[in-house]
């Protein structure tokens, strides 16, 4: 049986943001999605580091876009969650919901 690797908080946030952005998911759009939903300003380098870790775990795939003049001739890298990534996000969400349900300290708050 394959040992399950648990995701860190940032990794989970990046994975969920990549799923949320879906099309056009690259470094900046993922960082924006996290900032909008969590209220935290995340450094782009941290997002890319988390994306690299997720890619190494096979939870996300990357595709290089076309280089543009606006970006100084550098190409964007688009990220798509893989089937394993979607499964992992679903399982992590379900686990968090189960752990948080019925806790008196969390009543009335979003878990």
């Amino acid at each position: 049986m394959r040992k399950r690797e648990y995701l860190g908080q940032l990794e989970l946030m990046v994975l969920l943001a990549a799923i949320r952005v879906h099309e056009n998911a690259y470094g900046v759009s993922i960082a924006h999605a996290i900032a909008e939903d969590s209220g935290r300003d995340v450094a782009l380098a941290s997002v890319y580091a988390a994306l690299e870790r997720l890619e190494a775990k096979g939870l996300i795939t990357s595709v290089r876009g076309e280089p543009t003049a606006e970006r100084g001739g550098k190409a964007r890298t688009y990220f798509r969650p893989s089937a394993a990534g979607l499964k992992e996000a679903r399982e992590a969400h379900a686990t968090l919901m189960k752990l948080g349900s019925g806790l008196p300290g969390l009543k009335g708050q979003v878990v």
Binding site: V28, L44, A45, R64, R76
Partner: peptide
């Protein structure tokens, strides 16, 4: 890093869209 080119491109793009130099240096 593995995606350093993409990160550099993102920084150039964001600065062109009005981000400050301070933000770029922090990144």
């Amino acid at each position: 890093g593995y995606h350093s080119e993409a990160l550099i491109g993102d920084l150039i793009e964001q600065c062109a869209r009005g981000r400050t130099r301070w933000w770029a240096w922090r990144e």
